[in-house]
Design a protein around this nucleic acid. Sequence first.
DNA 1: TTTTCTCCGACCTCATTGGTAGGATTAATC
DNA 2: GATTAATCCTACCAATGAGGTCGGAGAAAA
Lengths: 163, 163
Amino acid sequence: MIFTTKAEYGVRLLVELGRQEGDRPVALKSIAENERLPLAYLERIVALLKRAGLVESTRGAHGGYRLARDPSEISMDEAILALEGEVAPMSCFYDDSSDERVLCSHADETEVCATRVLWLRVQGGVTQALSRTTLAELVAFAQREPVETKPTAGAELPLHDAA
Amino acid sequence: MIFTTKAEYGVRLLVELGRQEGDRPVALKSIAENERLPLAYLERIVALLKRAGLVESTRGAHGGYRLARDPSEISMDEAILALEGEVAPMSCFYDDSSDERVLCSHADETEVCATRVLWLRVQGGVTQALSRTTLAELVAFAQREPVETKPTAGAELPLHDAA
DNA sequence: TTTTCTCCGACCTCATTGGTAGGATTAATC
DNA sequence: GATTAATCCTACCAATGAGGTCGGAGAAAA
């Protein structure tokens, strides 16, 4: 699997926050029950979103979480970056990586590496799909209503028949 | 990392076969030495490519592997499918998967699932990038020569600045 | 018949995933 | 001010898969 459950749970959490958008923060417990996800694990996941500035928290009784911005201003590449880290099709694509196993000189910009070209295209495909999708769209899907907010160019395509 | 070293090593193996294309099969040992990859592991990887019909083998002395088709007829989505299995951004996308953890009804086609929409787009982005890239292109890159074979539509874009 | 290959299955080690447990802190409310 | 409901934080833990290794069994050329 490409993405882990962090991405799945984290995005669902964001969608849930987007649906319940109001003046009062939403307690994680209610989301955990709604989505039937383990609360303790969700706590760690929402911490990632908070650190990335996508979510704000209020402590204490009647506390909880709310979106830091309008859902239409939150793109999925930001969310996935926060949840999973940099989208890299191969380990040596990470900045910090000194993966000794894959000793192709991917990192060496000057040398033309055949596989690097391929992974760059894949990376581009993923980040495009992510950046073109906003949280507002997903919230609209979850509410089974047509998209109201103006989506980013190209985002109205489901893209899933494009393979 | 999205793909494992199987994809990296396997694609490099294919590129190497594409470069040394001739009448005689290429022994795995020479490829392992060229690319500095563990031979025993490469053996298992090339078995995947053979099973998928991308590669043919000759046993015995002076034996080895050759491409089953012209490099321009081998697209990377076939290769990755053989090496890594189905490209699925989330575990429940696999046919055989009954992943009890992710209990979103991704599999249920009738129900609109917000995250499913997202993963479908990602999947589409990856498979597009892969299917638009042929082995012939990568071989050309490895030989530091301009692409001669007519690439599939859109394949001439590196796509990596598209993010 | 030895050498050089492909083939095949068992095994092994390590890192990551997907959690859990237990508590500390903060703030509203009785 | 005690209780309660929430966020925060760190440590631990089991299962899985990744990335190999090892040893040998066929097959074909010299």
